[in-house]
Simulated assay, not measured.
Amino acid sequence: MWKTRVVAVMLGAASFMAQTHAEAQQRPAQQSVQWQLQVVSDGQQIDAFDGTTTVGQARTDTHHHVVTHNVGCKDAPGGSIDLLRTLTVSPLQASATEVTLTIEAQETIEEPGARETDTGCKLPPQPRRVAASHPGLTVPDGQWVTWTIVDKNPTLVYRVKASLATQP
């Protein structure tokens, strides 16, 4: 009697494994997107990000760039600012012709212009926090698309390129 039960359990397990294997083969592979993002300030590229991310997933990267300015009446180094930039990129959809990305950005930038005390001594630039979100940036396959984050003082533009990642 117990042999009959063991055989039944083994047949059930074999059937389950075959069904699971067949379903796995029928499911399409997860699509991945290769993307590049260039940060351009006043016409000059100042940073770049890239990655390969699965559709429906997100990737977050943070870059630091510490800047030290000469300050005071003796022009001494000081007034360091961490120009922190954090981007989260998430592909929403991807096809052979276009990719749609969600992009979340948080930046610390410097206010332009030299500042001085009443007596003419230099002050460091003031940091400014910028946050931007694009819920669905559509990028034609392999082409650059621009997204303006700040339109002046300074201009800040993201250039984005994306395409389906080639499957091995």
Rank of each mutant, 00 (worst) to 15 (best):
M1P: 08
M1G: 11
W2F: 08
W2M: 10
T4G: 08
V6Y: 05
V7W: 09
V9M: 15
V9W: 15
V9Q: 12
V9G: 12
M10E: 09
L11A: 14
L11C: 13
A13M: 14
A13P: 00
A14Q: 07
S15V: 13
M17T: 12
M17N: 09
T20A: 15
T20P: 00
H21S: 13
A22E: 07
A24P: 02
Q25G: 12
Q26D: 13
R27W: 03
R27E: 14
R27Y: 06
P28C: 03
A29D: 09
A29L: 13
Q31M: 09
Q31Y: 03
V33W: 05
W35C: 08
Q38G: 09
V39Y: 05
V39A: 06
V39P: 01
S41M: 14
D42E: 08
D42N: 15
G43M: 05
Q44K: 15
Q44D: 14
Q44L: 15
Q45E: 14
I46A: 08
D47F: 05
A48V: 08
D50K: 10
D50H: 13
G51E: 09
T52W: 00
T53N: 05
T54A: 12
Q57V: 04
Q57E: 10
R59T: 12
R59Q: 15
D61N: 13
D61P: 06
D61C: 01
H63Y: 06
H63D: 14
H63R: 12
H64T: 08
H65M: 09
V66H: 12
V67D: 09
V67P: 07
T68M: 10
T68D: 04
H69L: 08
N70V: 10
V71D: 00
S80W: 00
I81V: 15
I81R: 11
T86N: 02
T86G: 01
T86C: 04
L87P: 01
L87H: 07
L92C: 04
T97H: 14
E98D: 13
T100Q: 09
L101K: 01
E104D: 14
E104Q: 13
E107G: 05
I109G: 00
I109D: 01
I109Q: 04
E110S: 15
E110C: 11
E110K: 13
E110R: 13
P112T: 09
G113A: 01
A114Y: 07
A114I: 12
R115T: 11
E116C: 06
T117V: 02
T117H: 04
T119L: 10
G120V: 00
G120I: 01
L123W: 03
Q126P: 01
A131Q: 15
A132Y: 02
H134K: 06
P135Q: 10
P135T: 09
G136A: 11
G136W: 01
G136T: 04
V139A: 01
P140K: 04
W144I: 13
W144S: 14
W147S: 07
W147L: 07
W147C: 03
T148W: 01
T148H: 06
T148C: 06
T148N: 12
V150L: 15
V150D: 13
D151M: 04
D151Q: 11
K152H: 15
N153E: 13
P154D: 01
L156A: 03
Y158C: 03
R159N: 11
R159F: 07
K161H: 10
S163H: 14
L164S: 06
